[in-house]
Amino acid sequence: MSPTIPYEYKYLRAKKRFPHVWCPGCGIGIVMGSIIRAVDAMGWDKDDIVMVSGIGCTSRMPVYVDFNTLHTTHGRGLAFGTGVKMANPRLNVMAVMGDGDSLAIGGNHIIHAARRNIDITAIIVNNNNYGMTGGQFSPTTPPGAKTSTTPYGMIEPGFDVCKLMDGAGASFVARGTVYHVTELDNMILKAFRKKGFSVVEALAPCPTNFGRANRLGGPVEMMQLLKDNTINLSQLKAMKPDQTEGKIVRGIFVDRDSISYGDRYAALCENARIGSGG
């Protein structure tokens, strides 16, 4: 029996760019797999897809996929993506970012992308620290956690990415993990289908830095933590408050229909022309 090549491969720059830069046990490749499966389910032509990113481990993803790919400066993926989407609304634009990239240096851009409701899907791989530079704390590092820049423990509260994006006006907000892959595939697919700004936060392990600094074990143990420490929305409803203590909730938190920036801009152009008699 000849081996079957998984269909995901046709979306990869398989011959050119591998092996990849990610460490053993890293979750980013799993998110890339989810993205590719969601892209396939959408039936998008590779020519019509733009993947933008900033700087960091997750932001290296564009180099591996056979789309129009744009690896930008730290935190600015969504700003570049906004320009791409404005200039050619026909393109399907997604931004892949880490927690530091999207929420610290890129924090201003992501809240305004959400407020504008620009038709882009942002996929945030949250591994609770800056992996590429060696494990410094990020805006999602949990209180007390050790990183290379919090040797005595993290004293800053972290962002809840989903609440932040809900408050800023995103049309679709979901949180999954790289352990719950089918659920993640589905969330990304729904985010792609959504007109307007959609956000999927994917919790992922970083055994090399965050895991080691906090003695969380290797890749397998960290996967187990994602399984044990998270519950989905239906579980949450069935559980008593004391049972949900310390658990992170997975699920789709926001799914609303509001007019995207692109559609509002197109209407503005039309009204301006009518108003000017043109």
């Binding site: 930008t72 600015r76 570049f80 791409v84 200039a87 050619n88 305004h112």
Partner: peptide, 15 residues
């Protein structure tokens, strides 16, 4: 910063 970033994205997308 966002402005010039968007600008580069816009030109890459053909404007």
């Amino acid at each position: 910063i966002a402005s010039i970033s968007a600008l580069i994205g816009g030109r890459l997308a053909g404007s």
